[in-house]
């Protein structure tokens, strides 16, 4: 997770309030990969995530002069992105539960591990992504914000528009659900590995 220095965030907000294009570019550079990743996992579709991320940035342009000086830019952007996704779902009456769409969503690599490590890691990540994608939206978003993004429950609660205590309960439920959905996949993967070794 990318941590933004609070002082530089305050300065960035001050410059955005003055409609400084360089500040917009800097904010985009700092937050766009995180906003996109959040939306891609929330929407489970790359094209939708690109559209919603673009709309998020255009909202920032439209509201830059009216930002409060103490605005937490990261939280503001995540809140807008989440609300846009909720509006999108309402407008499309989106059905939940198409985890298969995840395949091919992340065409990139980080470092270059050995082929065995890469295969094992990809398989583990794929199972985790699929289990995450199969969760209902309200559980997925808290896991994305707290687990993937590393945000504190207080910040995530503001973004989700719920109290910190509700968020904590939702996080606990989400974590349990994810563990339950991961367990059968991992047991069958372990059995497969044992069978291959014994063969």
């Amino acid at each position: 997770m990318l941590v933004v220095n609070p002082d530089s965030e305050v300065d960035l907000v001050r410059r955005l309030r003055g409609r400084d294009p360089d500040a917009f570019e800097e904010a985009h550079r700092l937050f766009h990969p995180r906003i996109f990743a959040f939306l891609a996992r929330l929407a489970r579709r790359r094209d939708v995530a690109e559209d919603l991320a673009e709309e998020t940035w255009l909202r920032l342009v439209a509201h830059s002069s009216s930002l409060r000086p103490d605005t937490q830019l990261g939280a503001w952007l995540f809140t807008v992105a989440r609300n846009l996704y909720r509006s999108y779902c309402r407008s499309r009456h989106m059905e939940t539960g198409h985890a298969d769409d995840l395949i091919g969503l992340w065409p990139f690599g980080l470092q270059q591990p050995s082929p065995f490590e890469a295969t094992a890691a990809n398989e583990t990540e794929r199972r985790l992504e699929a289990a995450l994608a199969s969760l209902p939206d309200k559980y997925r978003e808290v896991l994305l914000l707290v687990g993937v993004e590393g945000q504190e429950p207080k910040e995530a609660a503001v973004i989700c528009g719920i109290t910190p205590e509700s968020l904590r309960q939702r996080l606990h439920r989400a974590r349990t659900l994810l563990a339950e959905r991961l367990e059968p996949c991992e047991q069958s993967a372990a059995m497969q590995l044992v069978n291959e070794v014994l063969r």
Binding site: R19, F24, H28, R34, A53, E54, L58, F108, E125, R175
Partner: peptide
């Protein structure tokens, strides 16, 4: 579970589209 989630790689946005969004935002702000 949270540790595994925190290690998930970030999907990369389309760089061309990102550039277009920045250009559009800059234009609107100026």
């Amino acid at each position: 579970i949270l540790r595994r989630l925190s290690r998930l790689p970030m999907p990369a946005p389309d760089p061309d589209r990102s550039d277009r969004v920045v250009a559009r935002g800059r234009m609107k702000l100026t």
